[in-house]
């Protein structure tokens, strides 16, 4: 399959974008998998594991295409297991520690709301390979958002204790949401070519879903102040190394091991 030409001509910015999509799904999927066997109720345990599974499946599609675009023979597995922290392109939000159940759900909701908006926009991407993956993933993510949204409302507008925890989670995670909407020159190039939506353009639709949900959940939307950023260009928090240490252990200790 031929590589769709991008404005810079060598696929570098496209490779960058595909890693961002894949790494967001991979790192959040890994975080969710940490809950397996620990969630407060069996149904929630299964739901978290199912969501993780969807995200890891989407990772295979995004990173598979990333490897193809890069053209150096790297597979999705190579990219997932053999890159170091500075080569990962996920936003800082998804590498935040799980915390309590409320924090995990709030992180999920803030991400899902963005995820669905970008995937819906990518369904009409000028690059059909991207549009195809987005069409597939959007269907799954619609369910993720439906669930996380529902639980934010129920726990936010729940007991005094659940409300307190959800507000705390929101206040802690809010400064990590800004990065989702900050574009760089590569994003601008791809947006101009009709391959991706400009990150800034997604903010309105995200605000609508988040604002409506938080209001229904009786939670107070924090003011937009300082926003943490860096993940999209490989500058991560101290949590990233710990995630990779666990996720990549097998391939690092036993290189090229196969199942």
């Amino acid at each position: 399959m031929s590589v769709t030409p991008t404005p810079s001509g060598d696929g570098t910015v496209l490779f960058e974008f595909l890693q961002r999509m894949g790494d967001n799904a991979l790192i959040l999927g890994h975080r969710l998998s940490e809950w397996c066997g620990h969630a407060p109720a069996l149904e929630e345990d299964i739901a978290l594991a199912n969501t993780a599974l969807d995200l890891i499946g989407q990772t295979q599609l995004w990173l598979g295409l990333a490897g193809e675009v890069e053209g150096k023979g790297r597979t999705a597995d190579n990219l997932a297991y053999l890159r170091d922290a500075t080569e990962f392109r996920n936003v800082l939000l998804v590498e935040r520690p799980n915390g309590d159940f409320g924090k995990t759900l709030m992180r999920q909701f803030l991400f899902d709301a963005w995820h669905l908006v970008i995937l819906q926009a990518l369904r009409s991407a000028a690059d059909k390979r991207i549009a195809d993956i987005a069409e597939k993933a959007a269907k799954e993510v619609a369910y993720h958002l439906d669930r996380s949204r529902d639980l934010i409302v129920r726990l936010g507008d729940g007991t005094a204790e659940s409300h307190r925890r959800m507000q705390e989670a929101l206040d802690e995670l809010w400064p990590y949401t800004g990065e989702l909407f900050i574009g760089d020159t590569g994003d601008a190039e791809l947006a101009a070519a009709g391959i991706i939506p400009a990150p800034e353009s997604l903010k309105g639709a995200w605000d609508d879903v988040v604002g409506e949900t938080l209001a229904e959940a009786t939670l107070k939307k924090p003011a937009d102040g300082y926003m943490h950023k860096g993940g999209k260009r490989g500058v991560h928090t101290e949590h990233m190394g710990f995630i990779l240490a666990e996720m990549q252990f097998l391939q690092r200790a036993y290189p090229c091991a196969t199942w």
Partner: peptide, 13 residues
């Protein structure tokens, strides 16, 4: 509905 997510990705409980 007990849960939107069931025993496999394609099923709800």
């Amino acid at each position: 509905k007990i849960s939107q997510f069931g025993s496999t990705p394609c099923k709800a409980s």
